[in-house]
Design a protein around this nucleic acid. Sequence first.
RNA 1: GGGGAGAUACUCAAGCGGCCAACGAGGACAGACUGUAAAUCUGUUGACUUAUGUCUUCACAGGUUCGAAUCCUGUUCUCCCCA
Length: 429
Amino acid sequence: MKENFVQELKWRGMLHDVMPGTEEQLLKEPTAGYIGFDPTADSLHIGNLVQIMTLVHFQHAGHKPVVLVGGATGMVGDPSGKSAERNLLSEDVLRHNESCVKKQLAKFIDFSAGANSAELVNNYDWFKGLSFLDFIRDVGKHLSVSYMMAKDSVQKRLETGLSFTEFSYQLVQGYDFYWLYKNKNCKLQMGGSDQWGNIVTGTELIRRKDGGEAFALTTPLIKKADGTKFGKTEQGNVWLDAQKTSPYKFYQYWLNASDEDTATFIKIFTQKGKSEIDALIAEHSQAPHLRKLQTELAKDITARVHSMEEVNKAIKASSILFGNSVTEDLISLDEQTFLAVFDGVPQIAVSKSAYENCANVTDLLSEVTQGKIFPSKSEARKMISGGGVSINKQKIEDSTHKPDYPFLLKRFLLAQKGKKNYYLIEIIN
RNA sequence: GGGGAGAUACUCAAGCGGCCAACGAGGACAGACUGUAAAUCUGUUGACUUAUGUCUUCACAGGUUCGAAUCCUGUUCUCCCCA
């Protein structure tokens, strides 16, 4: 084998648990391994990134990654997450999501690499034709209730209650593994640490039903050093889809990672080698204020998910928005640069007359901008008196001031709420 | 079935007839300091409006009172103890 996959994950801090014999199997021969994704949205988000990177390394080590889109399982809902039961997705939506997800995955793993090409399957395809009776005869028969009850995911829910559907989830997922084992010669399932129980049900099913041997490997749950959830912002998930999360925002998310987190993230979310990462970390600790690590991390991931071009735009935008620029710097930008910089910033159109007629800044930032910056005058006023609002990089001191700010490019105003929230107001005739 | 305790804003948690939009802590947001980090310090945190203002909140529905989150009655739910 080109590389020892298990060891690779280990030094990257991506290995939580692995079934005995897995490493040997992977060193013995190129092996097919799969990870399941929920097709609940038409885009993946960065919470999925650990699993995606696992597949990247897996393929890189010479193995064949199989991506399972959980069309069937997504309908049932895994009790491991405490979330309520899921809604049924229509087949149309399912197919749409599947193709979107595949497009995004193609940026990471190679679907036309010859022998170890990645492959995408949807478990809806083998579940839709399977009758309930067949399922309980062929699958349910092999596992005892006490075995299923022993799982953590079930135990935790016993108090609060879980439906039979959720209880059977592990069988459904276990059958996936079995099916892939039989039909795709897939011997390994990977996933987050919360999936361990479900994965093992699969290997157990393969053993009991077929006497076959299959393996399991899980990655740790990623947490941030401050204890908050990884991958969430005020606005919700950080998506890979540029429509849902602009490349600028995406880049910013990574750039904002704390020192501690960045050292972990860069191992997990980039393909950089050990020596390169060690050097970067050393360099960073020499001059932490330069935030070399964050920059490298943000660049690497943004370039992969979007493009190098988007990275450059994001860097440019960041340096203008966060550098020590003043009104003059903004005015001096040419139109093309200006628009590129503010590509990912929300834009609000305001008619010229509305702008001229508004009595004070407070109105401008609330009513006149349709509540998109501040939903009410009170909030605007509070934030202004707290010193948290700037226009064109100039702090607003007086909330009753009548707007007379110099336009940028003859028609824009840059409003800033706090340090990181920008809005572009366009004055139109 | 019998007895007891409780339900307060995002969460925890005070208040127990007027001075209560409601102490405090956490969280969140903002400011200062920094490195768009962490820590620390400061401010804001029911809504609207900017004024010695209005409105809606203290499980739900009624009642007593000039006046209630605070007292009374009923309802729902939660917890504990004894059967």
